[in-house]
Amino acid sequence: MSSAPNPAENRLTPADAQPLLEVRNLRVHFPTRQGLFGQQRGAIRAVDGVSFQVRPGETFGLVGESGCGKSTTARAILGLAPATGGEIWLDGQRIDGLSDRQMRPMRRVVQMVFQDPFSSLNPRMTVGRIIREPMKLFGLHRPEHRKLEVLRLMDLVGLNPRFLNRYPHEFSGGQRQRIGIARALAAEPRLIVCDEPVSALDVSIQAQVINLLMDLKDELGLAYVFIAHDLSVVRHISDRIGVMYLGRIVEQAPADALYRNPRHPYTQALLSAIPVPDPELESRRERIMLTGEIPSPETEYRGCPFASRCPVAEVRCLEVVPALEGDEHQAACLLVDEP
């Protein structure tokens, strides 16, 4: 890449470096209210004790069922959802509970690509302004060079630079998604939390964007939290992967190990459900179908939250909440180490 972000700030660091991001036992509970006076009745336990670390130059993939708390985790890291428990450390500084104003300088360090590209783009700003805004905010580049930088970023993500003066509604779904990526890159952050950043892209442009993210990681030591439901993409880009289920991480491992040897029954089911782009193969695949009641994030569980749908659950699974155990390859299941 030809831009010149401060190299000292973005140095590639060895794997044993201090984590850039550390999430410790994060909880985000949304109160549910009912009744005339809106008494709190219970809570949606969207994130319920999540811990992980991301080092400079590392990509942490986060996968799991729709509604399991991935976006809420991401938003909490950016200070956009309130952490109701636990701690978030960014670059050695504790950031959970910071006010908007206190959080602002941290946005230079961490940026987010939002899952819903349209509602995260200001409809009254042209693309050019949307992408230039972070440069202005953080005083990057000389003002007269910013336009050039905007054009360069647009080209990098595969947006025609001639679209500079268009508004968000004049773009297709996948084009909007790339505006969000260009805007995140414009701040020259050290960590980007990407929430489904390539879900609306065709496979070729998806490949282009993923290659770009991986190049930036190699060249600048950028780190990512990468949320995606496409498990082949996640495998491709991630160094480590956390599998979430109902607000918790149930398995965490280096990417290859996770795919080669999934240990949690939920991960096994997840991997078996991946549709393959080959009609021939696809019609012969065996799937682990998950049956049983999908648990609600409003209920507090005594045992393993996955037990109601687990194909191998035993009685004891209903009694003990399994802890995430293991060194490099951790799984939260009482049954994993048995034959």
Partner: peptide, 29 residues
Amino acid sequence: LGLLESLPRLDGQGSNRLTAISGSPPDLA
């Protein structure tokens, strides 16, 4: 053909580059 070649494969090795169709999307104007 290009589209099919751009697919990341689950059986593929991690972290090698994906093939993208070279060049930029066309300008419809």
